[in-house]
Design a protein around this nucleic acid. Structure first.
Lengths: 210, 210
DNA sequence: CTCCAAAACGAACAGAGTGTTCAATTAAGT
DNA sequence: ACTTAATTGAACACTCTGTTCGTTTTGGAG
């Protein structure tokens, strides 16, 4: 009585998503028209609008699918002791591995193909991840010499820039190596921030950094 | 015989540029139509196309204007000795000051208003700046443990992310402070790269960074 | 001031894309 | 085999683009 899942609807949605991805890699998201999509997918115009209100909604549904397939254990940093366990910025390697597994999709999204929309969504998703992790690493009352907001968006931008390089160049090295580069570039600045006691001064004031 | 600069053309072009900037701050570049622009500027449709082939060309001409007004002395790092003079990444403070002087324009471009186009151009311009500077700082034969290309795009992304934060939040602090944050975050990683001898090992291999 | 060529105007057009509607067709699941 | 949901494709009104062309305005030279 309740369950009547018509196989056609899933098939149609998949056809449309794949068509969009193909076209994104050819022309970039912005240049793709609904006309293009339904032509390539061999789907009627009205069928498209029966499933999605928009080109954007189609893309969003694809992104959502991808997000759900991202391993959950990587979104938090559940150290047994509760405070500082596992490497800082633990999302990095899992996400690189995830990108490797879903290469086609990541390339379509992250490469020049994906417009401002993808960039914004990716930024938001990663930002909450990084924010939570950094916040948990800090002594509760402590205030940073740099607004946490800035550190977070800096970290996310840095990661996305390296990820984009990796994907644009057809994975010129292993995920582990990319992870290593990311950490080598970004961790010195971050750790100096959250553990300023070790060098005996507030880092952000140091002319010594020049 | 030769010189007949009609004041009208300059006036028209300025009207159009200003209209575009206004609309960008309201709706974002992508949502602005040529129709919008000529309506707001009170300029005839055919006049628009007599001056620019495109919405994009209009934007480009605005960007070009901005780029020309950027102080030249900041684009290179002309140390008297020729090698390491002045702070690393010297473009930072001058560009922040430039942004402060041209606030409206920078906000329209860098904030969510400016689409993928602005981001790409900005990325390219800054990338050549950073590339030249970093390349000049390195011992000539030396090879980095991280591709220079990666370091450059990482640096540019990091700077743009902080610049965007600054502009989006209506300049919550002085350019000098922003510059300080940028350097505090990014320089530890960069200097460790180009002067690896000081800590006695190749930085990129150090698990010690975790 | 007069004149005229350069500039701006605006209406009209063809082309392309969007999002909607609807009657007709197809095929999945019972 | 039958029913019902899904798909189809044509037609429609709409918006935007980029071009054309005859008309009007106006800056600047003489």
């Amino acid at each position: 009585m309740t369950a009547k899942p018509d196989r056609r609807v899933q098939r149609t949605r998949t056809l449309l998503k794949n068509a969009l991805l193909d076209l994104m890699m050819q022309k970039g998201y912005d240049a793709v028209t609904v006309q293009d999509i339904i032509d390539r997918a061999n789907v009627g115009r009205s069928t498209f609008y029966a499933h999605f209100t928009d080109k954007d909604q189609l893309l969003l549904s694809g992104i959502e699918e991808l997000r759900e397939s991202f391993p959950q254990h990587a979104t938090r940093n559940p150290g047994p002791e509760g405070t500082v366990e596992g490497p800082l910025l633990g999302f990095s390697l899992p996400m690189l591995l995830h990108a490797q597994s879903n290469l086609r999709l990541y390339q379509a999204l992250v490469t020049k193909g994906g417009g401002a929309m993808v960039a914004n969504i990716g930024q938001r998703v990663l930002a909450t991840l990084v924010h939570d992790e950094l916040a948990s690493q800090m002594p509760q009352g402590a205030s940073l010499p740099i607004p946490l907001e800035v550190v977070v968006s800096y970290t996310v931008s840095a990661f996305m820039s390296i990820l984009r390089w990796w994907l644009d160049n057809a994975l010129p090295c292993s995920p582990q190596e990319v992870d290593r580069m990311f950490r080598a570039l970004i961790l010195p600045g971050i750790t100096a921030l959250i553990q300023p006691a070790r060098s005996g001064g507030t880092v952000a004031e140091g002319q010594t950094l020049l």
